[in-house]
Design a protein around this nucleic acid. Structure first.
Lengths: 221, 221
DNA sequence: TTTTTCATTTTTGAATGCAAAATTTGCGAT
DNA sequence: ATCGCAAATTTTGCATTCAAAAATGAAAAA
């Protein structure tokens, strides 16, 4: 198993919430499960620590990183900035084919909205945002975006998606698609910012509390 | 020696250009020099690879990452976006004391400009940009900024700093300080973008060529 | 002389082993 | 029964070791 694959598999375990935020990472168990020795596992953990997904405590092992409210706000702010930039760049560089693909994804997402399928809606939503970032044609930007959104997503916040909020989000997405089709970078950037700000407000309002269990883990330890 | 210290020392070696871009990283030598074994060294190299400073080639060791023109453009674009965001946030959060400190640093920098001391000017310039990012009060943003600027700086580009360019840069910095003092987030963001765009144009125009020696190293290898 | 092949050396990637640190456990004192 | 403290156990961090892959170099063939 290649180094990158080890990192990827542990990242997936963390993102799936299988090791919840704040929980201790069981070195020995992971070694057995991935069928590797401690050396490559520890290399991967240090990489993930640099990414912000893992917290290393000298002589005390590693834990799945736990996000505070402040961390969450910071991540959202940065995410907003990155998406706004991606939107501007995408308008300069996006091809007609890419726009068509996003339009199709958008139609798909709206369909899920109409059907009230939140899970599928989220999936489509994410695909669109990622497509915009990809269309920006900047791998550095794409890398940072992936890392930041991964950290946000891991928090598994549950926002109460009211019909009003949902309708607003869909309207914003209409505007996003529209700006893209007009290749209006400044406009798109502006809409994306507002869109993300709304999402951030939702999440922070909901408290996005990390589960009790983990707090307990930390308190006991 | 702690893990983070190992990472830091190797990063410094890379940023100093002691191991030039594209050059092979001599594991054994570094081990002897840092007085550590290969295990912690290799952990550090993987972390630096994730940061983009080191390139890992499976079964072929590691090299100091080499930046193409495209990489450079991408990094500048992202840097621009991050600084623009930092500027906006800073305007919301910066304290009077922080503004005063930046004003002092600015005066200092202008003095170096008057004296024609380019090295000190650059140092002051960098301090101001970093202070703005710090004033944004967002550690996630600060971390990404540090990582991106480090990669840019490592390229050791030499731009022909003409009197005109220099004068323009100083004027832009006046405007930056001014916007900060007025806490004009949108304005500051706009100026920072232009400022960075000008710098990027300088650098890309100059070609920022990685040194011949490294190209040779790669070609032979 | 140039190219190809093959044995030798070096280097890489990962498992194991070992000392130091931290955690847990057990026992005695209050 | 509870607290405190020391011994035992576990876990961590790193050095060492080992197998596999790649680089090197020398000899033979073209």
């Amino acid at each position: 198993m290649l180094h990158e694959e080890v990192v990827g598999r542990i990242r997936a375990i963390l993102l799936d919430g299988e090791i919840p935020p704040g929980a201790r990472i069981p070195e020995r168990e992971l070694c057995e499960r991935l069928e590797i020795s401690r050396t490559p596992l520890r290399e991967a953990l240090k990489v993930l620590a640099a990414e912000g997904l893992v917290q290393l405590l000298p002589h005390r092992g590693s834990r799945a990183a736990k996000l505070t409210d402040k961390d969450m706000r910071d991540l959202f702010e940065v995410c907003q900035g990155l998406e706004a930039l991606a939107g501007e760049l995408a308008c300069e560089r996006i091809t007609d084919a890419e726009i068509d693909a996003i339009a199709a994804a958008h139609a798909d997402m709206v369909q899920h909205y109409r059907e009230g399928d939140l899970i599928q809606y989220y999936r489509g939503n994410r695909a669109i945002h990622e497509a915009i970032v990809t269309a920006a044609g900047n791998p550095v930007l794409a890398g940072l975006y992936t890392s930041v959104t991964a950290r946000i997503r891991r928090a598994r916040y549950v926002t109460p998606m009211t019909p009003q909020r949902w309708a607003l989000a869909v309207r914003e997405h209409e505007a996003i698609l529209n700006a893209l089709q007009r290749r209006d970078g400044a406009g798109l950037s502006h809409i994306l910012r507002a869109h993300l700000r709304h999402k951030r407000e939702e999440v922070l309002q909901a408290g996005f509390a990390e589960t009790e269990a983990n707090d307990l883990t930390l308190r006991i330890a």
